[in-house]
Simulated assay, not measured.
Amino acid sequence: MAEQKLSSLRRTVVGAQFMFVAFGSTVLVPLLVGFDPAVALLAAGLGTLLFHLITKGKVPVYLGSSFAFIAPIIKATELYGMPGMFCGLVAVGVVYLLMSLLVKLFGTGFIKKLFPPIVIGPVIMLIGLSLAGTGVDMASKNWVLALISLGVAVVCSIFGKGIVKLIPVVFGAAAGYIAAVIFYRSSMDFSAVASAPWFQMPHFAKMSFSWQAIVFMVPVAIAPIIEHIGDVYAISEIAGKDFVQEPGLHRTMLGDGLACSLAAFLGGAPVTTYSEVTGAVSLTKVTDPVCMRIAALFAIAISLIGKVGAAIQTIPTAVLGGIMLLLFGTIASVGINNLVKAGIDMSKTRNLIIASLILTVGIGGACISVGQFSLAGIGLASIVGVILNLVLPEEKAN
């Protein structure tokens, strides 16, 4: 694909559009886990600029809050408190750095050996299924608003065209919010919006060192690392350039990891390459990396507008719950699709055992404790899957 030469004005317009595509998901993640959405926007903007610095400004990628970490964040906060949980998230970025070094030394083959589809598919399914109860609980606060949000998101997903189809979650949340303002305004509190200043620094969270949180969080990095690799291959195909070779997958992984740690250090959700923005790049045919940096600057600017951050936090819980019903089911479906596309034969006993134990260990709440250390949930299930994949013998063909 020939790279389009854009004027400064069009670059700015396209950059704003890319930021809008990622905006809904970027602020939705912190709302679901109790973070300040303004910090998430700031972290996404700064993280994207850091990523472009590490990758020599060559890759048209925008980073935003990762859905893969929602369940682990909620559980780790319960177990170790929010300051400890942020320490675990910073450590996730370190895992990216180690993987970056291994890719530089040995190439990508070892990653495919450690994390084949039979491991990654069930882990992705687990990420979605583990929060199903939370989504239902939030939606039950007001089923009318939840179903309006869900219905509009589904309609946009199926019948939407262009940008609408790329961000059905944004339109679903907007519809639910408008319905809440029209029919349930008396139950909504806008006083924080009125009192919020126009310019305000985001509320950065505190962090404290916690080995337990680190051990809990580190294995969760497996799924987003694999997602990162897939996104880099996808954007390479769209742009007609081999970003895996230049600037190199090790650089893109390093940039993502540093951005992830930066976001956690500030008090935001970990960031990762955004498939929605990759889709927007494919749709617009604009592969100029400068547009992504402009999108990042827009995100940073919006994060400093106090009234925007306050308004985002007035979104009713039920509206978010309706979106979660679709979102987490979709994540689980992505895991199933991962298995299908890879041609995994689930009639084979080996594959059945690996997938079954990943799901039961993760959903069942299994926990291993040694002294003050404990490992549970998605992290434990991921490690179980990796070990089983390495030790169980391949079945011989009949």
Rank of each mutant, 00 (worst) to 15 (best):
I235R: 05
L258C: 04
L101Y: 11
C156A: 10
G64P: 00
A221E: 15
M253W: 12
A234S: 05
V21R: 00
L266F: 07
M138A: 10
E3P: 00
T77I: 11
G379W: 05
L114T: 13
K5C: 13
T314Q: 03
P83S: 09
V103E: 10
D256G: 06
A2Q: 07
T273W: 12
P270R: 12
V155M: 07
V391C: 04
Q212H: 13
P60W: 09
A355E: 09
A332K: 01
N351K: 00
S210H: 08
F190Q: 15
L388T: 09
A264S: 13
K341N: 05
D242C: 08
G248M: 02
P224S: 00
G364A: 08
A221R: 11
R185T: 14
P393C: 02
A310I: 01
S347P: 06
I124G: 00
S100L: 00
G248N: 07
H250T: 05
I387C: 09
Y96L: 09
A205F: 01
F183P: 07
F106M: 04
E394N: 10
L79Y: 10
A2L: 12
L105K: 11
C87F: 09
L42C: 07
K241Y: 09
A342Q: 02
F373S: 07
A76S: 07
F171E: 03
S187Y: 11
L114A: 15
R251L: 03
F190W: 09
L320I: 13
G267P: 10
L258K: 02
V103C: 11
V136A: 14
V94H: 10
K165M: 04
A296C: 13
C156D: 15
V281S: 02
A146K: 14
L283Q: 03
R251Q: 13
G135H: 00
A342Y: 05
S7V: 03
P72V: 08
S186N: 13
H250K: 07
V155Q: 06
A76P: 02
A239C: 14
Q212Y: 05
A376N: 14
Y177H: 01
L97T: 08
V123I: 10
P60Y: 06
K396A: 06
G64H: 02
Q245K: 13
